[in-house]
């Protein structure tokens, strides 16, 4: 075939001759990074925003927080005032969510309950975070015997049935807001400590951490600058899931009569008080607190899932 002969190289007539001049090029162009590089957090945020379910959860939680403070203020009724004439009124234009058996306004109480429930959840998450990160961070970072000893303790605590311990402590200390938070966190931090330790162990062996170690960077600085940013993902996810489980646990304690005590009310205690009301047809007393618990659980769970996906570096494309 002609094509194989060397002197018969194809000349494409439609290409003008003067295109065959050397290209004027600069070296930087070749070295330029072709894709815009986003920081880890920007990238994670972009991915979270794309997750509709997680964003729904986030938006609901923001609204919930606003309403927890705004709700009691815009309500025409007080949450603690008992009006025996207005017992068990169905929702109406006057009492938006109805009233309870003591004539208290459910709308106002439900948002006051939101403050308490959210406070319990957030407090538990923050305390777990503080203890868990410190404990797990030290165990993972120090390694060796320290780690071994610290993790033995964690193992024993982890073996304890969580809710039983919570019940016991509540029985002993007597129910109340402080007791609940104390009981929820006394063994609750263990899960966080395990996660942090696992992450730290993993990250510790990454080359860039080794590198800063060889440069003689101080331990505290390595933990702050290298380890924490890289372990933040799973920690944030764990915290997102601690809040609803604390709210749930409080509801469970309320059911056992060990929850928030009057005059304070939480969603759990309101729902528990209303359990018998549903059989007498006063559905709104159970419906609104139960709905808010469920929506909050739902929001935190989908947000946690979304964060888990968004913060997972493996999924980065």
């Amino acid at each position: 075939m002609e094509l194989h002969k060397r002197d018969n190289r194809n000349i494409s007539p439609e290409i003008p001759d003067d295109w065959f001049a050397p290209k004027n090029k600069n070296q930087e162009q070749a070295e330029a990074v072709v894709r815009p590089s986003l920081s880890y957090w920007q990238d994670a945020w972009n991915r979270l925003v794309k997750n509709k379910l997680a964003m729904t959860g986030l938006i609901f939680l923001i609204l919930l927080t606003i309403m927890a403070f705004l709700g009691p203020a815009i309500s025409p009724h007080s949450g603690s005032q008992q009006q025996l004439a207005n017992q068990n009124l169905a929702p109406s234009s006057d009492y938006w969510f109805g009233t309870d058996e003591l004539g208290r306004d459910v709308f106002t109480r439900v948002w006051q309950g939101a403050q308490v429930s959210l406070f319990v959840g957030l407090a538990a998450a923050l305390i777990d975070f503080a203890i868990g990160v410190a404990y797990g961070g030290i165990a993972g970072y120090k390694g060796g015997k320290t780690d071994n000893f610290m993790m033995r303790i964690v193992e024993i605590l982890y073996g304890l049935p969580y809710l039983l311990v919570v019940i016991l402590i509540s029985v002993v200390m007597g129910p109340g807001l402080f007791t609940i938070i104390f009981a929820l966190t006394i063994t609750g931090w263990v899960g966080m400590a395990r996660i942090v330790r696992g992450q730290v162990l993993q990250v510790k062996n990454y080359e860039f951490v080794m590198a800063s170690k060889t440069f003689g960077t101080k331990t505290g600085r390595i933990i702050r600058k290298n380890l924490l940013p890289n372990t933040m993902g799973p920690i944030i996810v764990q915290m997102t899931l601690t809040v609803p489980s604390a709210i749930f646990a409080e509801a469970f304690l309320s059911f056992l009569g060990l929850g928030i005590q009057p005059p304070l009310a939480s969603w759990g205690s309101m729902a528990n008080d209303a359990l018998s009301a549903i059989l007498t047809g006063h559905w709104w007393r159970l419906f609104f607190p139960a709905l808010l618990i469920s929506l909050t659980m739902f929001s935190f769970n989908v947000l946690g899932d979304g964060l888990q996906d968004a913060l997972d570096p493996k999924l980065r494309r």
């Binding site: 469920s294 659980m297 769970n301």
Partner: peptide, 9 residues
Amino acid sequence: LGISIPNFV
């Protein structure tokens, strides 16, 4: 939903 609703409710 199963995770979100307290079992007593």
